[in-house]
Amino acid sequence: MFLNLLFLTSALLTVGCSVAVLAVKNLMHACVFLLGALIGIAGLYATLGADFVAVTQIMVYVGGVVILMLFAVMLTGGKDHVSKTQKLKSLIPAMGNKTSYLIGCLTALVFFLTQGYLVSKLLGSIEVQKQVDTFSPTVQELGELLITNHVLPFELSSVLLLGALVGAAIIARPRKARPQYEEEAEEHH
């Protein structure tokens, strides 16, 4: 019962906030709704028994990524240039042409049929559990897996993070502007 309640609230939070990210005009509000959606996803992880992943999600996204996003929106003004006057017709070249609609529908139909066939072939042999009741702590097992079976990606991700840290620092560092007189001297030449 707890689980169902948690699932329903998390699912509502996730779906509602992610739709709000799409719908709201103000980018700052969109960032806050993204925060809500990410917390909702953490709740969904918790209903799936993934306790460590859920808390990591909160730790990384709430403590890091969302604050970075808020900073970026604030530093860049937060203007979004969605213009209502632009119509779909002027944006997409083949809009309003019957042949292109027909071709589009056919493509979508073929695509979905192929996908459905492939998925049913591939997943037909897989057994999906209707309901899994037991929850077990995952931390110890995750730690063991990370340093045995998945040790290469684990170490590579540390290199990636170091690279991202150094790269972000170098890119965002304010470079010394060239002094005014040098430019003027170049213009005279």
């Binding site: 925060l35 306790d51 909160i58 730790m59 604050i67 808020l70 604030m74 931390v139």
Partner: peptide, 25 residues
């Protein structure tokens, strides 16, 4: 008695930073 209690406490308390930033903005 969460089995990742310390980690949870660290994670959820970082919400305060978001609150302070939003209040200031």
């Amino acid at each position: 008695q969460m089995n990742i209690g310390v980690f949870y406490l660290l994670a959820i308390s970082s919400l305060v930073g978001v609150g302070i930033f939003l209040g200031g903005y």
